[in-house]
């Protein structure tokens, strides 16, 4: 990914168009569209966070759904206790979204720190399987938690409170709230990419042994990136719970981890902006492809994944730079 000053006109055009579209969307006043776009923003944040380890670090984490789910469960657990008027481990529950962000980031980051310390001792295929296994562990943990409805999950009656000055129940406000987080994170990640930290991580991806020989403790760098990525994904989980009014183990399912990877690769891996495009493409396909197929042959829409599966195979075999690569060209 080029530095800002080195970007060609296609980059500038794309960024300007994306920003304009993102800001103007709620003004169309279409509730359905705003909700759909909010969902895209939430998954875009999670996918961009995943790209920090996937694209930057070359670490194929197949367990990011766990961090998303942890963030969502912060909202769900708080809601349950607030509703019942009970305490959690002796502490009063909070519905304040900013405190929930903090808690989600700490919990997801903490889980990533503990599991990552084990995962990062391995490489390649083993890393994929172990991240998947730890995520599955958390999935079964939440399924077994009867206190919070186990498999059925928690239906929320209200969104988190915006600290008194933000009404998150308002569709447009919540949309801009999610957008702000996405833009903030992208700006931060963009800086990170070109920072010393980002260069060490990228160097370690290309040749870990050389970076170590140069004196960089790459294990610590990679662990930091992993924890950071998990914390941001946890924040996305808080947004996801609020966007859907629902929290359940399904968010921690390994299918979700797979979908996040699909978004990153579809959009363009290692580009930070690519995953945003990928999330949009994936969710739009999920939303409209069934209807399109039904138009072609009635009843076929139900089986849209019969089309998605081979499409992913084709993307894996042939398309290496993703949608962003097609749009702005260049790349490496």
């Amino acid at each position: 990914m080029p530095r800002f000053s080195e970007m060609g006109w296609r980059w500038h055009l794309l960024l300007a168009f994306a920003l304009l579209l993102a800001f103007a969307l709620p003004w169309l006043g279409d509730d359905y569209l705003t909700k759909l776009a909010t969902r895209i923003l939430v998954f875009a944040l999670a996918a961009a966070a995943l790209d920090l380890v996937l694209g930057l670090g070359g670490l194929v984490s197949f367990g990011h759904a766990a961090f998303l789910g942890l963030g969502a469960y912060v909202v769900g657990v708080m809601f349950v206790h607030d509703f019942e008027g009970t305490t959690i481990l002796g502490l009063a529950p909070t519905q304040n979204v900013f405190l929930q962000f903090l808690l989600a980031a700490v919990l997801a980051g903490g889980f990533a720190l503990v599991t990552g310390a084990v995962c990062l001792r391995t490489r390649g295929v083993a890393f994929i399987m172990i991240t998947l296994a730890f995520a599955q562990m958390l999935f079964y943990f939440f399924v077994s938690l009867r206190r919070y409805n186990g498999e059925d999950g928690i239906a929320l009656w209200n969104r988190s409170s915006g600290g008194g000055w933000l009404d998150l129940e308002d569709l447009a406000v919540f949309y801009y709230f999610a957008l702000a987080f996405l833009v903030l994170f992208l700006a931060f990640a963009f800086r990170l990419y070109h920072s010393r930290f980002g260069r060490v991580i990228r160097g370690s991806k290309d040749n870990d042994r050389r970076m170590q020989a140069l004196g960089f403790p790459t294990y610590r760098y990679r662990l930091t990136a992993y924890v950071l990525s998990a914390a941001v994904t946890g924040v996305a989980g808080v947004l996801l719970a609020n966007a859907t009014y629902f929290v359940g183990p399904a968010y921690l399912s390994w299918h979700v981890s797979g979908q996040l990877i699909v978004m990153v690769v579809l959009g363009g891996i290692g580009t930070l902006f690519g995953p945003v495009l990928g999330a949009a493409l994936f969710i739009l396909m999920e939303e409209f492809l069934p209807d399109l197929l039904d138009l072609v042959a009635t009843g076929s829409g139900e089986y849209w994944q019969l089309l998605l599966g081979p499409l992913l195979v084709v993307v894996a075999l042939f398309a290496r730079r993703g949608l962003l690569g097609v749009l702005v060209g260049g790349g490496r």
């Binding site: 996937l54 194929v60 197949f62 390649g124 295929v125 994929i128 797979g258 990877i261 699909v262 690769v265 891996i269 998605l308 599966g309 081979p310 499409l311 992913l312 195979v313 993307v315 894996a316 075999l317």
Partner: peptide
Amino acid sequence: HLYQVLATFG
């Protein structure tokens, strides 16, 4: 491995 994951997920 990423592309193997993607293809076999598909």
